[in-house]
Simulated scan of single mutants.
Amino acid sequence: MPLPVLEAFHGLQPDPLPRGPPGVGQPAALRVSHGPGLPERTGHRQANGSDITQSSSVVGAVGSHHADPRAGWFEYGVTMEAEHRRKGYASEAVVMLLRFMFDERRFHKCGARVFADNEASLAFQRRLGFVEEGRLRDQVFSAGQYLDVVMMGMLADEFAQLHSPSE
Rank of each mutant, 00 (worst) to 15 (best):
M1D: 04
M1F: 02
L3T: 00
P4T: 08
A8E: 08
L12H: 01
L12E: 08
P16V: 11
G23T: 14
V24R: 11
V24D: 07
V24S: 07
P27H: 00
A29E: 10
V32L: 12
H34F: 12
G35I: 02
S50I: 06
Q54N: 07
S56D: 10
S56M: 04
V58D: 04
G60D: 03
S64Q: 13
A67Q: 13
W73N: 15
W73Y: 14
V78I: 11
T79K: 10
E83D: 14
H84E: 08
S91F: 04
E92S: 01
A93I: 03
F107P: 07
F107G: 06
H108P: 03
K109N: 12
K109A: 09
A112L: 15
V114Y: 02
F115M: 04
F115L: 08
N118P: 10
L122H: 10
R127C: 04
R127W: 05
G134K: 12
R135Q: 02
L136D: 12
R137W: 05
D138C: 04
Q139Y: 05
V140L: 06
F141H: 15
S142H: 13
L147E: 09
V150S: 09
M152T: 14
E158Q: 03
H163I: 07
H163F: 09
P165R: 11
P165H: 08
P165V: 11
E167W: 14
